[in-house]
Design a protein around this nucleic acid. Sequence first.
RNA 1: CGGGGCGUAGCGUAGUGGCUAGCGCGCCUGCUUUGGGAGCAGGAGACCGCGGGUUCGAGUCCCGCCGCCCCGACCA
Length: 577
Amino acid sequence: MLRMSTLFLRTLREDPADAEVPSHRLLVRAGYVRRVAPGIYTWLPLGVRVLERVARVVRQEMDRMGGQEVLFPALLPREAYEKSGRWTEYGDNLFRLKDRKGGDYLLGPTHEEMFTTLVKGEYSSYKDLPVVLYQVQTKYRDEARPRAGVLRGREFVMKDSYSFDLDDEGLRVSYAKHRDAYIRTFDRLGMDYRIVAAVSGAMGGSASEEFLAVSPTGEDTFVSCTSCDYAANTEAVQVGAAAAQDPADHPAMQVLDTPDTPTIATLVADLRGKGHDVGPERTLKNVVVKLRHPDGRIEPLVVGVPGDREIDLKRLEANVSPAEVLPFEAADFASTPALVKGYIGPQVLADAKIRFLVDPLVVPGSAWVTGANEPGKHAVNVVSGRDFTPVGTVPAAEVRDGDPCPRCGSGLRIDRGIEIGHIFQLGRKYTDAFSLDVLGREGKPVRVTMGSYGIGVSRAVAAIAEQAHDDKGLVWPRSVSPVDVHVVRVGKFDTEGVAERIATELEERGLEVLLDDRGGSPGVAFKDAELLGVPTILVVGKALADGLVELRDRAAGTSRTLPVEEAVAAVLAEVRG
RNA sequence: CGGGGCGUAGCGUAGUGGCUAGCGCGCCUGCUUUGGGAGCAGGAGACCGCGGGUUCGAGUCCCGCCGCCCCGACCA
């Protein structure tokens, strides 16, 4: 039994000055964590309990789906990471250190290399597969900017698992099992989350989904359909496009003098003055960037998006991956006379041998107002497929609330989320790097394929806190509450030690109990109980004179009184649902 | 790395160049109090981030450094 009189806990009456987001504020105020360095936190007794309870749910679901737990060191030699290329690829985000002999070590940011070499060392037959191994481990990433308390730390607890399969079909099965296990896990943790399609990344073609806890403090932006179950990271979303139009429906292209109109807003105003009533959505904004391809080649690229939308560089980059997007600078304009800054139009790009891609919103046959490739001049009725022909399409425009869902056409909505899980069909990147083969049925070596799956355990604690709090404090879901019940003894009414007896009996019946036996003023006890956030609070106080106690529901904010002798049964019923 | 803000006791904070750096919370002692962060009395606790400078005098002004928080860049 935890007793408030001796529990290592100091709650704060005021918000810590350096905490802004609710989870950070409340976890510090309620005495769950303390900061040691940026992105590095100490877990105090109540915090450890929540962390352990989250980890317990994660382990149970991993075990249920057939995973086997192992534990790697966090301190790792350079060798394996050198072999995979990540010793350098990981850049400044990797904590590197040396031992006394000058040997290079690192603090593991993730363990693909270690799991791959472990399996390679132990297994060598197709009969051994599939296998799923996992660990719950402390990871280290020297983030450029840790933020929001434990939400984005440099040291954090993560469950990472890896599946090893003989072929792509096996990988799909392992992936599906993880997906189910994650759904069960996050359901049990009482989280409001979405599974969103993620960018497949440089590996190409690999399925990847993120589990996002819906929260305004989240760092990821995602869209979800208001009527079907489509959801995607904004970078990965494919917005439904309108139907193609007939170029013949539009009048001939016409060039107009539009002096001093380098921006969409100035252009629209100028055209209105000339009697052309076109809104920004009818203009074509042509943004120039440079692409750097993996082979080092750099090429200019012009991307056309409707003028009422910003270009989403992250989305563009995700869709031109593995090429990188670089800004097109003044010097680049100087060396490319075909591109007139502020007045770029696609009409001349083919002749200038500059690649032109359009966002799918720029449908074939549609007419636009766009630059005439001369300072101070724009052209109207510039028709796609007649006056210019894009090389192809690339999703690059910012996605907006209400854009059509690619699956059902209903409106999409935009929300933010905290990435609490990521499942990824990794493929053979690491098994190739480490030549992980097993002997197949035919006696020939088969290259193993991998999946990689993560759950941010410590981040989940913060994400739950983000979702489960009110103005009084935390409101833990039962599955992760530091204890099952918080027994509060207030005032001098309990001369018989009733609170103590009830707490003991609850513990004997298998519950974890926190007893506030401090005997201070009732206000303090009540405020602390609300701040700590245990979902069930049993108050033993003045109603005891009538043989009654009070059972409170922290989440609902309700309470009911009941006879003392029914207290234990009522709490048990409450906790065990 | 760019932009912004801030460093005063465990926490939150006040402090025109001029008394011994103030207040609230928390902490300690005693008495009172006990259903919504109690009252009274007494106490402990500060290298005012660090270094240099200006000045008769610096928490306060100047220069440099360090650290922290927020926004952005970054984040298999």
